[in-house]
Design a protein around this nucleic acid. Sequence first.
DNA 1: TTGATATATTCTCGTATAGGAATATACTTA
DNA 2: TAAGTATATTCCTATACGAGAATATATCAA
Lengths: 131, 131
Amino acid sequence: MARAATTSDVFNAIAEPRRREIVDLLARGAERDVTELVLRLGLSQPTVSKHLGVLRKVGVVAVHKAGQRRLYRLNPEELKPVHDWIQNFERFWTDQLASIKEAAERKVKQRAAQDRGASNPQSISKEQSHG
Amino acid sequence: MARAATTSDVFNAIAEPRRREIVDLLARGAERDVTELVLRLGLSQPTVSKHLGVLRKVGVVAVHKAGQRRLYRLNPEELKPVHDWIQNFERFWTDQLASIKEAAERKVKQRAAQDRGASNPQSISKEQSHG
DNA sequence: TTGATATATTCTCGTATAGGAATATACTTA
DNA sequence: TAAGTATATTCCTATACGAGAATATATCAA
């Protein structure tokens, strides 16, 4: 079996960095035509059109015609599955932040105890594996 | 140029659904050996080992040996770039929630106005494109 | 109509899969 | 040492890219 198509889902679509750049540009709010994207990305027009085609197929962007131009806009709803999935791991880095904070507070308390002249702070040596 | 390697970054690594399943299993906290993952995923042992190899190369999982088994654990920090990127779009769905709420409130007010006998509510026909 | 501009599509090529099958490697136990 | 278990690696094949080049299609301007 080969690798899944980039158009199979949003996770595959955004695996390509140029496509994430396109999404980032469109996230700034305004609609943009292909030429604008070409200029900003420094890629060839066919390359940009092909990337837009992938994003279109998974629904991450939408187009409408305006004369001879095509105006692309972001359709952020389609990014939500990525958000929902990665959200499940948020606790890991918030927990980490929390424990960094805790460690800092322990250190402050310890220092305060030392300042008061206590020479034998109760064992706080555990959970200090600094990476 | 071919598609980027699945080991080139975390976005490519998690594009594959089975690898996301592995990450989900490891996120439940405990370390797991390969056999456990094989049983839970219903894939062949070589397939699982190969997916683990990809996740290892991008740093999303870490291993250590325990006898003849290899215990895998999640290394959630490496998922953070995905979180950070997708976070930039969170405003879109929170804004959307906000506007749904607003619309609901407008509707309530309108109904209240009708209940009071007002038969000509001021033009509220715009921004009502329901998909 | 003719030429110019904007965008999409097709073709080609090198490359990287994902999974199955077979095999290699490392460790354990008798 | 030999057999058994756990895991990784190699070989194979069908498939799908991503970019460049060339071309097709649609619209505008004169």
